[in-house]
Amino acid sequence: MYGLGLFKGLGITMKNLVSPSRQFNIVQYPNRRASPFDLAKVDDQNPISFIATHPIKTLRSLLGLETLVDRMPQHANFRGEEFAWYDRRCTGCASCAKYCPLGIIKIVTGTSGVNQQEGQSYDIDVFDIDIGRCMFCGLCVEACPYDALHMGSGFEEGKYRRSDLVINVDQLKAAEKKPSTWFRPQLTDRGHDPIKGSTADWDQVGRHEKPSLEDQGERWAKR
């Protein structure tokens, strides 16, 4: 009958209001207000004993003062900032610089003797990545023939100046190496997951051999 559709629609919105399975998977970045139950879960206690043992924390959380860190569930393939660069693997061939669509990677190699690699007669003096203009397409990572450059996993690189957004060679060396598994299937095969916090050393990130067709078939059968 004409007019029933309106009430059907009201039913749908009510269903979405009450049904927990229809809710958004909400992430309250960077932190969320924690209820006593959440705090108890973090402390690995049951809620009643938590309330009994931590009355002040319970009160604070009821007033909305207690917070918990909340992060987006990322996949290990996520193409993030904080490039992971391994100077021991880099030969300074500048394939990444050539392949970058925006030309934001600057590499200068020389014989200054400051950053000399083992068994190499020249060194990488400048390796600047201007992530202020970077669009994280990952073509530089794809271009690297020696698996020296990897996408990172983070995304919180806000800075107050554009000039601070240029990552130089020292920062790249000092940074914690959490390479994304993007375009690096060998990392997935070794169980590396940067989102869970695992780091990878320079000798663990190379592709020692290509996965054969049989390997890929095995992986496919597992689905």
Binding site: C137, M151, W182, P185, R219
Partner: peptide, 21 residues
């Protein structure tokens, strides 16, 4: 492919990477 909006997934000659498990 590691991104949500600006995907850049395809390459001339295929896609750059097989889908994860």
């Amino acid at each position: 492919c590691g991104a949500r909006i600006t995907l850049s997934y395809m390459r001339p000659g295929g896609v750059f990477q097989d889908a994860p498990d």
